[in-house]
């Protein structure tokens, strides 16, 4: 049963509209195995690995970054609905102009000296997280003519088992660029809405920051082909 849901929501490796997949997607079928005892466990990040301030991307510089300030809240659950507790969540994103502080980012947009676009935290005992940031900008990319990536925030999740490891992207509701984004549309249609945050004003800060909610669900830690 875990197998079926995984097949339903995840994109294929080869998705020709996203050109980079053509040379990097494996051509052979994957070999299905049960997670080893090693893979049913996972790296445990010590509490001191993260600082509380690292969940607020707007306090990294000397003053506030440019852009639309936002609070992003959510929960990390497993597919049984159980909270994924004390697990590392890493986020990274472009600045409000759609620019990453990377030498290979050739988008002609300004860097923001007050924004690095990197954060991390451990989920709490209910699997909850809260990130303060600014809304990232869209940016052009070379995949196709007039291609622009919709605004997105990258998430890296460890779960509580190596077999749960997931990297994904969160998008914003109502973004017209979603319809033309091959990375977003590589996900089977039924799964796409699962990558879009909900506006959640009450979790924002009155008069200061918009609120959004984005929950994430990881596969079970010990599911096997036999469903054991």
């Amino acid at each position: 049963m875990a197998d079926t849901s995984a097949v339903d929501v995840h994109p294929p490796y080869l998705y020709p509209d996203y050109k980079s997949t053509r040379l990097r997607a494996p051509a052979q079928p994957l070999v299905r195995v049960a997670p080893s005892p090693l893979e049913a466990a996972g790296p445990a990040f010590p509490k001191h690995f993260v600082k509380n301030s690292e969940a607020d991307l707007t306090t990294w510089g000397k003053s506030a970054p440019l852009g639309e300030k936002m609070v992003l809240v959510g929960r990390v659950l497993d597919e049984g609905g159980r909270p994924v507790r004390r697990s590392l969540v890493e986020v990274w994103q472009a600045n409000a102009s759609g620019k990453y502080p990377h030498p290979v980012d050739d988008h002609e947009a300004p860097l923001d000296p007050n924004f690095l676009g990197k954060g991390q935290l451990l989920t709490d005992d209910e699997g909850r997280y809260r990130v303060v940031t600014v809304k990232p900008g869209a940016y052009p990319w070379q995949n196709h003519a007039f291609g622009w990536r919709p605004a997105h925030i990258h998430f890296s999740l460890f779960g509580n088992a190596y077999a749960q490891r997931l990297i994904t992207q969160m998008f914003f509701p109502g973004d017209p660029l979603l319809a033309i984004d091959p990375i977003f549309n590589s996900v089977p249609e039924a799964g796409r809405k699962l990558l879009i945050a909900d506006l959640d004003l009450e979790h924002g800060v009155e008069g200061v920051a918009l609120g959004y909610r984005f929950d994430m669900v990881l596969r079970g830690a010990r599911a096997t082909p036999m469903g054991v």
């Binding site: 995840h10 997931l166 994904t168 977003f184 990558l195 994430m216 669900v217 990881l218």
Partner: peptide, 8 residues
């Protein structure tokens, strides 16, 4: 709950 899809 449905699994969150993977992205690059």
């Amino acid at each position: 709950p449905k699994l969150t899809p993977s992205q690059t």
